[in-house]
């Protein structure tokens, strides 16, 4: 049985107009191109890609922080894509973000208690200060921070503790979904594991749906049930965690896996060293398959003809001529 999608993204496209100079016209930048995916209730969808692949742009459109140029975004029963205030205000009760850098996402002049209860005050969800205090204590406990941290300031805390505060702030209004934008990439390895375990526990306990953005396949493979690999604003491959990790089809997916884990690299026919160059500017994307200039197995056909987005096995999609 197919689970009902909690988040549904259909043919999402975002084109930015980049201002030209004094005498040149503005030029379009296609940051996200015709992207579709569903996230069932209680599951985690991982968007993987390098910088400039459009993953944060997609997240912003899902969070209602950016208006899509084309396409639909639905979160539960909220139509986010139409970008209207009435819909967006309902969205903040359902969906909360957690950002990458817990040093810049927390106001240094506020105590932890007011950082965490700010969403409650803004949304007027609690009748009294006592109720808010109780709620703060509850989420602090949930993220594994001692109750006395409520009185402290962000600069008294380590990176891992700050990220716990950021997670607590997102949880305080009981959302149904978190958008996690590189939640552990600013943290040390040992702390990273703590936060990843915490995110998993919170998800199990509260039946949360996650949209996770990361450049790190190791992180994504641990926490995600579904993975989409982005390159220059388009999906190269999409499927369940096991489909992608154990049966990757696209050369770019294989390269990213090989880069992330030397043990996995040994079983793949594409090695990390095979990928040359860097992601090109989205201002002038290459023709044909967007990945062809860096692809070690590209043919003449890849240079001229764009591969179709097709299903290779149930739920496992890929855009590559050679599959």
């Amino acid at each position: 049985m197919k689970k009902t999608p909690y988040i549904s993204v259909k043919n999402l496209t975002k084109i930015f107009q980049i201002k030209g100079g004094l005498f040149s016209a503005s030029r379009p930048l296609r940051a996200v191109n015709n992207v579709s995916f569903d996230i069932p209730v209680g599951e985690t969808f991982g968007l993987v890609g390098e910088s400039g692949s459009g993953k944060s742009t997609i997240a912003k459109m899902v969070m209602g922080a950016l208006q899509p140029t084309e396409g639909k975004v639905r979160v539960s029963d909220v139509d986010v894509g139409i970008f209207e205030q009435s819909e967006l205000s309902r969205l903040c009760r359902l969906l909360q973000p957690v950002f990458q850098d817990p040093y810049s996402s927390l106001d240094p002049s506020m105590r932890i208690s007011s950082i965490i209860d700010e969403p409650l005050r803004v949304q007027r969800l609690c009748k009294s200060a006592a109720e808010r205090k109780e709620k703060v204590a509850e989420v602090l406990d949930q993220v594994g921070l001692p109750p006395d941290s409520a009185r402290r300031f962000p600069n008294e805390m380590s990176g891992g503790q700050r990220q716990r505060v950021a997670i607590a702030r997102s949880l305080v209004i009981n959302p149904q979904c978190l958008v996690l934008d590189e939640p552990v990439s600013a943290l040390d390895v040992s702390v990273q594991a703590q936060i990843l375990n915490l995110l998993k526990d919170i998800q199990d306990k509260n039946a949360l749906t996650y949209l996770l953005i990361s450049h790190d396949f190791a992180v994504v493979s641990f926490i995600c049930t579904q993975i989409g690999v982005l390159y220059l604003g388009e999906f190269m491959e999409l499927g369940s965690r096991d489909d992608i990790i154990h049966n990757a089809q696209h050369p770019y997916t294989k390269a990213l896996i090989a880069t992330a884990d030397p043990a996995a690299e040994r079983r793949l026919d594409i090695k990390a060293a095979d990928i040359k160059g860097e992601i090109p500017s989205p201002m002038s994307p290459p023709g044909g398959c967007p990945f062809h200039p860096r692809c070690p197995v590209a043919t003449e056909r890849c240079k001229s003809e764009k591969p179709l987005w097709r299903e290779v096995e149930k739920g496992h999609m890929v855009a590559c001529h050679l599959v």
Binding site: Q192, A193, A218, S221, D242, D261, A263
Partner: peptide, 8 residues
């Protein structure tokens, strides 16, 4: 503490 891809 490093997540390994091939071990779930």
């Amino acid at each position: 503490a490093i997540p390994r891809l091939d071990e779930k």
